[in-house]
Design a protein around this nucleic acid. Sequence first.
DNA 1: TAGTTCCG
DNA 2: GCTC
Length: 216
Amino acid sequence: MADLFSLAGMQGPARQELADGAVLLRGRALADEESLLASLDGIVAAAPFRHMVTPGGFTMSVAMTSCGAAGWVTDRGGYRYAPLDPLSGRPWPPMPAVFLKLATSAAAEAGFAGFMPDTCLVNRYEPGARMSLHQDKDEGDLGHPIVSVSLGLPAMFQFGGLARNDKPQKVPLEHGDVVVWGGPSRLAFHGVLALKDSAHPRLGRNRINLTFRKAL
DNA sequence: TAGTTCCG
DNA sequence: GCTC
């Protein structure tokens, strides 16, 4: 019987080192696909996707929501983690068990045993949406890694160095891929090129990215 | 600069 | 890809 990788049409290594402390685990989330998507529906029902505004006044093309003890938010006042959803004034939905299990196990595989995220930022990319090169540096303790799960439409991830001017490598990410970075790569610049228009059999014209962090 | 727009 |  064909394994999950064959069924998904994967080729090439299941594990790829992107940099010192940065690992791509291809297809790592496939086994939990339906549980993840069911949990995602519950999160979005309680805390809908919204397009937030950067401190510079630009509306982001990526729509976001969060779950866990805090959620990443941006407005004209800046970037921060907020314990309450500004849209509802209520706490963010709790972190689903399947989210936590995937994040902790993928982190351990990548060399970050003991990672215990307290937030998951959920990013929704529609065709044309993108994320310019940036660093994740709003977390209280940068000793913890980042775990990034890709679902739905494929995207071109950019993974750069510690300086904005470092030329990023282009990494194609597909449904089920997980990228983990921490340690010497924790402050690596990264981004996503504009999403190409196509359709995914399960998620339609959407890419969903789950980004796990220890924020507090 | 987690942003958009324009030029070659 | 470079620019701000």
